[in-house]
């Protein structure tokens, strides 16, 4: 499978221009014979939306942008970020990721963990998603995550327990911390790579992380997108800070090989985890 990473810098609050940017990169990915192209978090709108979040929210079934992207998905699978207005629950807007394939919406994941502290204020403007659910793409069982979701390891665990062999995180992560002179990137870049390495190895899954670049209101998006193999080996590492497009050959057979070498998946007991969690949650609530 060939996966294209589009480490781009979307225009803040200009979906028309961003749609063009997406279609350009999709064409490029098709011409490079990629099977899937992945864009960053909120790639159709930009990240620092504040009140614009509600104004730019779309219903995927009615959005003209989705119509264009669905057409494009007849040639190549797409993952991108957008603001979703719930069709069944108007007024609630989500920071969402979509997986489009063969002209259909295969899955929409609503970001569960909305960072709302320090420089982040997503909880002020978005409703939180309520589930992690892997789905089949025809090639591999896949799990979608949005940015901070990935830093809560329970999110990836759900995809692992649900049988995902491919975990895709789309991200708009600012780079922070420059006081480690020997590290090539920001301290926060190291944090994402650490998680990528650990989750890919212990889930025996391909982990794809697509982060954006560019500047918004003083925030510096760090780039540094990556792919790890099911053996926990880095098979792609994009540069920090620079816009970059890269097509990466990913051998999906490695998932099975890794799971034969390290039977974490075979020996996993989600029911034990579930029962333990249930007790923990019940006891905490009784306090």
């Amino acid at each position: 499978m060939k996966i294209a990473l589009a480490q781009i810098s979307p225009v803040l609050g200009n979906p028309e221009q961003n749609l063009k940017l997406h279609l350009d990169y999709i064409r490029k990915a098709v011409s490079r014979k990629a099977n899937l192209v992945v864009f960053p978090e909120l790639s159709l709108t930009g990240y620092t939306l504040k009140d614009l979040a509600a104004e730019l929210a779309v219903n995927p079934r009615k959005s003209p942008a989705f119509k264009k992207l669905l057409e494009a998905s007849r040639e190549i699978d797409l993952v991108f970020g957008f603001v979703e207005e719930a069709a069944d629950d108007p007024g609630l807007v989500y920071n969402a990721a979509a997986y489009l394939s063969r002209g259909r919406i295969l899955h929409i994941h609503r970001k569960v963990f909305l960072p709302t502290s320090g420089m982040f204020e997503e909880g002020r403007f978005f409703a939180a998603g309520r589930q992690f659910r892997p789905f089949d793409t025809g090639q591999v069982r896949t799990g979608l995550l949005v940015c901070r979701d990935f830093l809560h390891y329970g999110s990836s665990y759900c995809h692992f327990a649900g049988g995902a062999g491919l975990i895709i995180t789309i991200s708009a992560a600012p780079g922070r911390g420059v006081d480690e002179p020997r590290s090539p990137g920001f301290q926060t870049s190291r944090m994402w790579e650490l998680m990528g390495e650990a989750i890919s190895f212990f889930s025996s899954a391909v982990v794809v992380y697509c982060n954006r670049v560019g500047y918004e209101d003083g925030a510096v998006f760090a780039g540094g997108s990556f792919i790890y193999s099911p053996f926990g080996k880095p098979i792609a590492q994009l540069p920090y800070l620079d816009e970059k497009f890269e097509v990466v050959e990913v051998d999906l057979k490695e998932i099975g090989r890794a799971r034969k070498s390290w039977p974490f998946r075979r020996d996993e007991r989600p029911e034990v985890i579930w029962q333990s969690l249930e007790k923990i949650i019940r006891e905490n609530h009784e306090d």
């Binding site: 780079g175 420059v178 006081d179 090539p184 920001f186 560019g214 500047y215 510096v220 920090y240 800070l241």
Partner: peptide, 20 residues
């Protein structure tokens, strides 16, 4: 308090270019 100087230069020159 030591900083990664090449990374800082790259970040800040990019910031000046983009924001301008």
């Amino acid at each position: 308090m030591k900083i990664n100087l090449p990374l800082v230069v790259k970040t800040l020159t990019g910031f000046i270019r983009e924001e301008t």
